[in-house]
Amino acid sequence: MPTMSPRRWRDARLAVLLLAPAVLGMVAMRVVPAVSAFAESFNHLSLRTGVKEFVGFENYAYLLGSGEFHAVLGTTLLFNLVLNPVIVVLSTALALLLAQRLPAVGLWRSLIFVPAAVPGSVTALIWSTAMQPDGLLNALFAAIGLPKQPFLTSSGQALGSIGLMLAWGAIGYWMLFVVAGLKDIPQAVYEAALIDGAGWWRRLTAITLPLLRRPMAFVLVAGTVGSFLAFAPVQILTKGGPDGSTNLLMYDVYANAYQVGDLGVAQAEVVLLMILMAVVVAIQFRVLREERS
């Protein structure tokens, strides 16, 4: 049996020491809560009475047979189906624009990134003020002759308004990853294309976008996870309303746990949310892999 040389042994120990904090943090903040949620999803624990009893798959059966849960699931999927492609397209478009030699391009990048540094609760309050009946957005609409909009008080506009807030905070952040991908594209490829007479559109579709598939795929997958976990704007502004139009899965978990007081159902919903995210992300990876092939 081969043995490790002293140098390899030192390198292995150094690697373990460097990786240990990140691994321990991931286990403590990701793995342990996930295992705990799975275990507790088979129990019924009421915050009101404190009584805990094993109920098996009853919590899952209740959720899967509930019309309210089906509505929450449909709202969450629709929200992600619309929001995530918008974030990918806009962050890529901004990255392509700011990759040009524009005056004060560093300043523009910083200004676009600023919303990503604002906490979600602060973002919600900013947009809540702007979306008031006499707020900034309706003032702008009135200035160009458009009628006032109800935004967060309308069941037809509230979910889109929440999506607008999340996109505003996310686009600048994900744009940086696309910009980094643009910097990794060799300039020699563009120079060869120019020699061959390729125009701007041809270079974009034949070189830039194909070579940006990896960072764009990362933005899509990571953005999808973030959108599934959206909570703060809903909890602060709409409480899942009006008429359940913004009742996303994360808020429904909170409502079942701390408003209804049924932790077992809430934990079962967390497990279903994790399964749903895993399925959606797996489908995205499969589609992106087929596109690359």
Rank of each mutant, 00 (worst) to 15 (best):
M1N: 10
R10E: 06
L17T: 07
L19Q: 01
A22Y: 07
A28Q: 12
V32G: 08
A39C: 08
H44N: 13
S46F: 02
F57T: 15
Y60C: 04
Y62F: 12
L63A: 04
E68I: 09
H70D: 09
H70E: 11
A71C: 03
L81G: 15
L83G: 05
T92N: 02
P103G: 05
G106I: 01
G106K: 15
L107Y: 05
S110G: 04
A116H: 15
P119I: 02
G120S: 11
A124Q: 05
W127F: 14
A142Q: 15
I144T: 07
P147R: 11
L152M: 06
G156T: 02
A167Q: 07
G172E: 10
Y173Q: 08
M175E: 03
L176T: 10
F177W: 12
V179C: 04
D184Q: 12
I185E: 06
I185K: 09
Q187H: 02
V189E: 12
V189T: 11
A193P: 00
D196E: 14
D196G: 09
W200Q: 06
A206H: 12
T208E: 03
L209V: 15
P210A: 01
L211R: 11
L212D: 02
A217R: 03
A217Y: 00
A222Y: 05
T224Q: 00
A232Q: 14
V234A: 08
Q235M: 11
G241M: 08
Y254P: 08
Y254V: 06
V260K: 05
G261S: 13
D262K: 09
G264P: 00
A266D: 04
Q267G: 07
A268M: 10
E269C: 05
L273F: 07
V279S: 08
V287M: 11
